[in-house]
């Protein structure tokens, strides 16, 4: 069982993570580099120069960008280890796990790990003012944990009381509120910040759906391989 979970998660996580990394490089990185021109002061919002002037972005930086892709693959492998472990428990309790159901698992993963925390702690463009990082991380983990439990209850709870608890768990972190900065000091234009958050969410959703489908698919394949090996 352990090897089936591990093998499924490693392959699904690494391949979905590779796609996530490339999508981020293509769609998020240019926005991030543009924002860094403001963060470093090379461009100024409402400065003396023409607003909207675009400096050429730094070229492809092999070390920086390859590291980003590798760390994206690692992160999605972490997501996959968690998700496939939960998939195995769900299957044990009678839920079907395959590529099609995996799509739904992927959407749920995106909601739990990106949308739920991002609803109050929006993906930050470099230079954005923010509260102290430890406080935000505690809030992030608590919100993600609550969202995971909540989505599990919505999917498998099957009782009104548990669904009500799920709604409370989804709302509570946002009613309490995320740690906020005491003053706004971000030098980056709101247009870039908004595009950054939108792109981060878009790439996150795409990558998570791919991750869910791959996890379901590989889970099936690995199960079939193991039972074929047992028959011999």
């Amino acid at each position: 069982m352990t090897s089936r979970i591990l093998i499924t998660a490693l392959f699904a996580g690494a391949s979905a993570g590779l796609m996530a990394g490339l999508l981020q490089l293509l769609f998020v990185q240019p926005v991030l580099l543009h924002a860094e021109l403001y963060e470093s002061g090379q461009m100024t919002h409402f400065g003396a120069g023409a607003v909207g002037a675009r400096l050429p972005l730094p070229a492809f930086d092999a070390v920086r960008d390859v590291l980003s892709v590798i760390f994206t693959m690692l992160t999605y492998t972490g997501y996959a280890l968690l998700m496939v472990a939960l998939m195995s428990i769900a299957e044990e309790r009678g839920a079907p796990i395959d590529a099609r159901w995996g799509l739904l698992w992927g959407v749920a993963g995106f909601v739990a790990f990106h949308l739920a925390p991002g609803f109050s702690l929006a993906p930050e463009v470099p230079g954005a003012a923010a509260a102290e990082v430890t406080a935000r991380q505690i809030w992030w983990f608590a919100t993600v944990g609550a969202a995971c439990v909540s989505l599990w209850l919505i999917a498998f709870g099957g009782r009104v009381l548990l669904w009500a608890l799920a709604v409370v768990l989804l709302l509570l972190p946002h009613l309490i509120g995320a740690p906020e900065p005491t003053r706004f000091a971000g030098p980056v234009p709101p247009e870039i910040a908004a595009l950054f958050a939108a792109r981060a969410f878009g790439v996150g959703l795409a990558a998570w759906v791919i991750l869910g489908a791959f996890a379901g698919l590989f889970w099936q394949r690995e199960g079939a391989r193991i039972s074929a090996a047992e028959r011999i």
Partner: peptide, 11 residues
């Protein structure tokens, strides 16, 4: 991990 952390929405 800097760019990935920003692009993924981690604090």
């Amino acid at each position: 991990a800097h760019d990935m952390r920003h692009a993924t929405g981690f604090p």
